[in-house]
Design a protein around this nucleic acid. Sequence first.
DNA 1: TGCGACGCTTCACGGCGACGAAACAACGGC
DNA 2: GCCGTTGTTTCGTCGCCGTGAAGCGTCGCA
Lengths: 169, 169
Amino acid sequence: MKVELVQWPSDEQRLAQLRRDAVPRLILVPEGLVPPLSTDVLEDWIRLPADDDDIRARVRVLSDRAAGIEDARVPELDENGLLRVSGRWVSLPPVEHRLMIVLLDRYRAVVSREALARAGWPDGIPGRNVLDVHIVRLRRRLAPLGLSIQTVRSRGYLLEEGHVVPVAN
Amino acid sequence: MKVELVQWPSDEQRLAQLRRDAVPRLILVPEGLVPPLSTDVLEDWIRLPADDDDIRARVRVLSDRAAGIEDARVPELDENGLLRVSGRWVSLPPVEHRLMIVLLDRYRAVVSREALARAGWPDGIPGRNVLDVHIVRLRRRLAPLGLSIQTVRSRGYLLEEGHVVPVAN
DNA sequence: TGCGACGCTTCACGGCGACGAAACAACGGC
DNA sequence: GCCGTTGTTTCGTCGCCGTGAAGCGTCGCA
């Protein structure tokens, strides 16, 4: 993941934005100025003037950390129906658990309604509307984890990271 | 928490030990040498010669991070039924003690009701509802320690740090 | 352009089972 | 005796799941 270089204190506003967006960043602090401190593991700073290799070293570490956090963002489903993503979790009831297995198996790809129906109800689907209802319920349960199910009309559904709606101030 | 200062590369062995012990540490790197890099959030380095304030700043951040991790550390249960977490403690009666052993063994993972029943009553469970009642009592005892037992419906229970529930409007 | 068919979303409802919690009684150590 | 622990009963609550129905946009077709 790309690491942003931030001039201090001239880039203060940009720094605030990068912090909100959880973007890894290295703050360049001129001689004589106090660095802005944070325990955020995606933030680091370096005193100027600095060796290019030192800057590269700190950028490298930040980038590796971001990659590690990124890995933690891919959802994991255990055999008990517990779905974990980036530290948080929800428990999925039996039907939604079975649906989630195939959705995760084809993460970011389309899964047909038939495939979902077979996964959710191996003994045959009870009603014509059941799948739709369970998709709605699954959507609501996934939202707090930052996951969303997209509809691909007349093709099926697709699981992906939720879209972060830009907050209008 | 105390942050260790490490001379590089002369303190290399000590550094390895500190890493194993998860002790926060700041590595002092003389001019011209390549710093040892790690994504460990409890490790940082600084190029010499450095301003005392800069060293203090980095030590401060490491210390704050260690404090944050300290708060989240896993609870410990001794053979007398004393449960300690972040300085505070409670004493657990026999049944709850045995339940707690398996809950801690699978910290943050689901423990089935059957497993809990076997742990709590090795000679067979007396009644149908006993486990539920003891879970309730355990919950009340754990709450002051910031621990909570989550229900995973029809699958079991799960022990974790208590949730600070963000109040919705 | 207007209309209906279709696909999808969402809600409200009822049945069922799992779980929560209070209240009470029995037991035992200090 | 007093208090903490334990088991039991009982009742209330909540989650899960299927069903019916209303709403809405898209597409095909006359």
